[in-house]
Design a binder for these strands. Sequence first.
DNA 1: ACCTTTAAGACCAGTTTAGTCTTTTTATAA
DNA 2: TTATAAAAAGACTAAACTGGTCTTAAAGGT
Lengths: 134, 134
Amino acid sequence: MMELTRKGEYAIRGIVYLAQQPAGKVSLISEIAQATEVPQTFLAKIFQSFAKLGLINSSRGTGGGFILGRPASSITLRQVVEAVEGPIMPNRCLLGTGSCERDGHCRVHPVWKTVQSHVVGILDGVTIEELASK
Amino acid sequence: MMELTRKGEYAIRGIVYLAQQPAGKVSLISEIAQATEVPQTFLAKIFQSFAKLGLINSSRGTGGGFILGRPASSITLRQVVEAVEGPIMPNRCLLGTGSCERDGHCRVHPVWKTVQSHVVGILDGVTIEELASK
DNA sequence: ACCTTTAAGACCAGTTTAGTCTTTTTATAA
DNA sequence: TTATAAAAAGACTAAACTGGTCTTAAAGGT
Ligand code: SF4
Ligand code: SF4
């Protein structure tokens, strides 16, 4: 239960690799894919999601590639995971009112809410900078 | 991310219903399915998993049905969820050594371990008795 | 015998996962 | 201005998983 998909795992590996590069260095997707042992075309998709959210900046053409969009210390593990896997949501009823007609009197509902806030708290407490340090 | 499946949701509803019945009362799968708004044949499968683990007792024939296998206070939400969804496992590398060759130096690994232990702790801290009280 | 009830397992449509492949766009360099 | 380099976009796919259904078998009661 609650397993991270390959996409999430690869996403973390990819952005951590970026954070480990010297400041200002632009990395090619081919280079990142090889270093992180992730299929290149799949990683490219993942990085597109990051770029849309501003987590990384991309540039095309000769000398192009990827670079962190903001300091590694301001990117949390939660942001990376949610960028590719969607919000952390242990049960459907946490989305909003009306998603389950039982949620008024349901005793299980608050348990899932607790789980959600704990997991969010843990992942928000870890930055990519911390993960990148060796 | 981390969403409980229908099977897990239905499993909880079903066993909580059983716990809400008067002591000694045997419930039919048709009755439970109707009360919990779960497809009957699907719920039957779920209850088979419970029976194998001893969480509930089943008997066939006239007068048969399902009854809790042990006190609701000694069944935790974790046991119920894991019975149908498998172990709580945020990432593959938590299964055992060797599942990821990076786990020695990996900084992400301990984060998933923390997530796992928190979620397990929360779900183990909730009994079906608590969920069944009205 | 006959009826009731769960057990077991085959089956299935739809969705998601984990990618691949091709074409297009943008940027640099000769 | 042409060639080259690189990411972006999107179509496509096989395999697995989800959320069930259906049929037959087994066990128990009358
Ligand atoms: S029954 Fe309770 S836990 Fe289940 S979806 Fe509804 S509100 Fe959430
Ligand atoms: S978190 Fe680290 S140890 Fe776990 S699968 Fe990812 S790289 Fe491997």
